[in-house]
Design a protein around this nucleic acid. Structure first.
Lengths: 239, 239
DNA sequence: TGTACATCAGTGAACGCGCGTTCACTGATGTAC
DNA sequence: TGTACATCAGTGAACGCGCGTTCACTGATGTAC
């Protein structure tokens, strides 16, 4: 079936386009991504790219999807390498996987978690890959709740303000992604941990540790590690 | 002295340029900011702008400085309106001031705390205004430490991992900005609170609450408020 | 108070560049009978 | 197995656009004597 050959060639060239675009993203950022420049590097005439990609925005979408998938894969792999019962270890593995990936591909990270690209509206197809990382966190919360049924109660007792009905309503959209066995208190802590993780990585990548944290890579890593250990403990993931 | 008149006229037109640029930023983002478009809107020919601003990058710098100053002012004002002894209240006022400002000027917030602008290197002049917000936080920590000399000890006792010498070394650059009376433990918690605050605001602004937190403004605010209350308590700021 | 000179804001044209997207086309590769 | 037709990748030219920055210039406004 020679049609399959064509399909494969098509997929391969599309892949090459995305790969070159990814490299350009790494040097010029999303705003500087240009179909013409990608075409040039591939030795094609610029209009030829339109056989594979409908528009610049669609190329951006492909990059975003690829980015979420790559990050998701990195995180899943790192977490899977830790014994399932070591919840704190799984959390830390997740954190470092996110950070390592972000440091290795800063512009791609910025595309996913930085400022929205002006004029670009993320289509539906980017939503599902984005949930891959959060699914890892959801599993952690689920396991923590299952292992210690009283965990949420103890955490809530320590907290100064309870998760009331209004707050629960605010978190309603995310509930379908978390099993019923996970109480609201844990969902809130999970969301806090999630924002803390990405907030810390973003601060480091976007230059806000300037005159705050020593630029030495080992020290940066150490600070990050300590922060995330504390967030993990606060979230109820036993170290 | 007519030279002063000229100086004033100069300052006024420079101000108008920055103001128009700020508005353009609000619709097109930093990458779309164009000297020519600004000139057009002011009824000048594009080259005339160069009498006031040396380059596009310098205009960006002016915008960044203006942004940090405006945010700093908003935060300082909000915090000053709360009685000094109400540490938790001051923290919450600070948080809401940051969020309200960011919601009102999303592109400016993105310029300050989002992805770095590719090819743009922030000059020294942007560093000092950026510290204005953090100074507020530093004062909060200082007051908390002064009021309760044992606070850091108690917090450290709860924590699973202490701030050891390595971690302290990582935080060394920020130490000059915080009085000696504030122990490392509190500095770490302050940094955590800081990243949590901006991480949460960024997630909301950059679209990561999609399918997570209800889009209703009142519910969003409620969730933010609850999160920040908990962060404040965790940081040792009495509610 | 008047005059010669210096400073400065703003003009208009130009340089050289890159971009996204469309369109009619060529020629190779597949498909149906 | 051979032929007529359809599909598809890639070409090259063009449209229409905007950008940052430079430069020689005009004319008004200030300054020094």
């Amino acid at each position: 079936m020679p049609a399959a050959v064509r399909r494969r060639a098509r997929a391969e060239i599309t892949g090459r386009i995305v790969e070159v675009a990814r490299r350009h993203l790494a040097t010029d950022g999303a705003a500087g991504l240009s179909l013409r420049a990608v075409a040039r590097e591939l030795g094609m005439v610029s209009s030829a790219v339109y056989r594979y990609v409908a528009s610049r925005d669609e190329l951006l979408t492909l990059l975003i999807v690829e980015g979420y998938d790559a990050l998701g894969e990195a995180v899943e792999g790192a977490v899977a390498a830790v014994p399932g019962e070591d919840l704190g270890g799984r959390w830390l593995a997740c954190c470092h996987a996110v950070r390592d990936w972000a440091l290795a591909r800063p512009h791609e990270y910025a595309l996913l978690y930085g400022s929205p690209v002006p004029g670009y509206e993320a289509p539906q197809s980017t939503v599902e890959p984005a949930t891959r990382v959060t699914a890892v966190l959801s599993r952690l919360l689920t396991d923590a709740a299952a292992r210690d049924p009283d965990l949420a109660g103890r955490l809530a007792a320590q907290a100064p303000a309870a998760v009331d009905a209004t707050a629960a309503r605010a978190m309603a959209p995310v509930r379908p992604f978390v099993p019923d066995g996970v109480p609201d208190e844990l969902v809130l802590r999970g969301l806090t941990a999630w924002t803390q993780l990405f907030g810390t990585v973003s601060f480091e990548l976007f230059g806000h540790w300037h005159q705050v944290i020593d630029p030495d890579p080992a020290l940066r890593r150490r600070f990050f590690d300590l922060s995330m250990r504390r967030v993990g403990a606060w979230t109820g993931l036993p170290a």
